[in-house]
């Protein structure tokens, strides 16, 4: 941002050296907490996420490129509020929050209220984001993240995050969010609602994929036409959910 002259701060405080912010952990109740200095690479190599939060596990290896993942952080990515950022979609699909800390203590801000627009977040000037919190799943967490990019490290052409919590054969909770197909991260709530409170079926997967595509607001650019991007939202939503349905059938 500074190199591109989008930002010229008078003072910059490096939080990298603050001790004990590099953690990610799962509380007893299943809440996931990611500290502000936990790197993408730490999440990519995490032994916790595969089972405890599959949507995050799917997204971690797709962020930027392997070397950038050594420095970049999940919390930083959400704060950056780039509509093409992967983590903001994943966190939105999971109904996650950001914990901000300032002189008056800590407060929790839902990610969907935290991102105000491109490169704008809800932090006050005297606050820092110290943690991302993914709430306790309402069942067995399942999900995925798919991203179309021209090459590794390029911005997403399209990204789709899907997170569901299974309660028996039903979907107890669902979240779907879209990357890079609008002026900000898009929460495809109508698509997610189609899935909630009933089993996954080919029919409601098709309906959810259609509603996700409708929620997208893509623009034609050098990465592809608006129609193509909308189609990819449909395909990715369907592909993730169909994969979950298949693994459910195989397990049965």
């Amino acid at each position: 941002m500074m190199k591109l002259r989008f930002a010229s701060p008078e003072m910059l405080v490096d939080i990298n050296e603050i001790p004990d912010l590099d953690y990610h952990r799962v509380d007893d109740d299943g809440t996931i907490r990611v500290g502000a200095v936990c790197r993408h690479a730490d999440l990519e190599r995490s032994s916790l996420l595969d089972t405890r939060q599959p949507t995050m596990a799917a997204a971690a290896p797709l962020v930027a490129d392997p070397i950038v993942r050594m420095r970049g952080t999940l919390v930083g990515s959400v704060c950056h509020a780039d509509p093409q950022g992967d983590w903001a979609s994943v966190m939105t699909a999971l109904d996650a929050s950001i914990i901000a800390q300032g002189p008056n203590g800590r407060r929790s801000i839902a990610v969907r209220d935290f991102v105000l627009g491109p490169f704008q977040n809800a932090l006050a000037f005297d606050e820092i984001a110290v943690e991302a919190v993914v709430p306790t799943p309402r069942g067995m967490p399942a999900g995925g993240y798919l991203k179309l990019e021209r090459r590794v490290g390029d911005y997403a052409t399209v990204g789709v995050a899907v997170a569901i919590d299974r309660v028996g054969s039903q979907v107890g909770r669902a979240g779907i969010a879209l990357t890079a197909v609008g002026p900000a991260t898009i929460a495809a709530d109508a698509a997610a609602q189609k899935l909630t409170g009933r089993p996954l079926t080919a029919d409601n997967i098709g309906e959810a994929a259609e509603l996700a595509a409708e929620a997208a607001q893509p623009k034609s650019d050098h990465r592809g036409s608006a129609d193509f991007k909308r189609q990819m939202v449909r395909v990715f939503t369907s592909r993730i959910l169909t994969g979950l349905l298949r693994s459910e059938e195989e397990a049965a």
């Binding site: 690479a41 392997p66 070397i67 050594m70 420095r71």
Partner: peptide, 13 residues
């Protein structure tokens, strides 16, 4: 020991 793109890190860091 970790690979870093040195154009995206300040010297002071």
């Amino acid at each position: 020991g970790r690979p870093v793109k040195s154009c995206t890190m300040f010297a002071v860091q």
